[in-house]
């Protein structure tokens, strides 16, 4: 199987280039991560990429695969057209090869204060939450921060410093939607202005690429609705 992989080592390369690799043997059921590991082990140990759990739960190995963001470990090779073109996630600075600098992405995550905030004294038992209230967190808390969505978003490409991006906004809604959280007003206040929230133009690339099947666009819509409701 043929692969074309983005290479760039700032130590030695003046500019990035695409390198071709061929793996003669592909076993049935192999994922793209298996192929990358095999290339690194048998052809070229200098190929750098992130990986850890290998089963789509840690979010390390998000890549741009044949033009589309996804996790290498849960992308079956047989679903891919040859030569498989693998590039780093778009829009973020490249550190080396397929490894991108995710600082901006993480800063936007931090900026939405992604933690449960309660002002009342804590009871000695759990906060009560009905199953229906808990259901509202489904489709939100599962985010693995892989950055597939935000780096597929043209609005995030243009304003990565000002627009929070789909991943961070999904988390903003995760806490707004939590019946236990008491910081609704502050959270909404933090998202006012032309950029933080409102740069989303519902292009929906985020929904299209999310490897966990989550829907940031819907979350962003929910935040807007709540904003409107509280202003009325």
């Amino acid at each position: 199987m043929q692969f074309l992989i983005y290479r760039y080592n700032p130590d030695t390369d003046s500019k990035p280039y695409m390198q071709q690799y061929t793996l003669p043997e592909i076993e049935p059921g192999m994922m793209l991560l298996d192929a990358l590991l095999k290339i690194k082990a048998s052809l070229d140990d200098s190929l750098s990429f992130r990986r850890s759990c290998g089963e789509g739960v840690c979010g390390s190995d998000a890549l741009n695969i044949n033009g589309r963001n996804g996790l290498a470990c849960i992308t079956p090779l047989k679903s891919l057209k040859e030569p498989v073109e693998i590039r780093p996630l778009p829009g973020l600075p490249v550190i080396r090869d397929l490894v991108v600098d995710m600082t901006q992405f993480y800063q936007q995550y931090r900026a939405v204060k992604p933690y449960l905030t309660v002002h009342d004294p804590e009871p000695e038992i759990e906060y009560e939450q009905t199953p229906e209230q808990r259901d509202r967190l489904d489709g939100l808390y599962e985010c693995i921060l892989c950055a597939c969505c935000s780096t597929a978003c043209p609005s995030f490409w243009w304003n990565p410093d000002k627009f929070r991006g789909p991943a961070a906004l999904l988390q903003a809604w995760r806490f707004l939607a939590d019946s236990r959280d008491q910081a609704t007003a502050e959270r909404l206040q933090d998202l006012t202005g032309a950029y933080s929230l409102f740069r989303c133009h519902t292009i929906m690339n985020c929904v299209d690429v999310c490897p966990k099947g989550l829907n940031p666009t819907k979350a962003i819509g929910n935040i807007r609705k709540l904003m409107l409701k509280t202003q009325l």
Binding site: Y115, E126, E128, Q129, T130, R134, D178
Partner: peptide, 20 residues
């Protein structure tokens, strides 16, 4: 320790009576 985690925001599944 479980209660502390719940207070920290862990989205535990719930029973009909609202408990973990």
């Amino acid at each position: 320790c479980v209660i502390e985690l719940e207070h920290s925001g862990v989205p535990f599944s719930r029973l009909d009576n609202g408990k973990i």
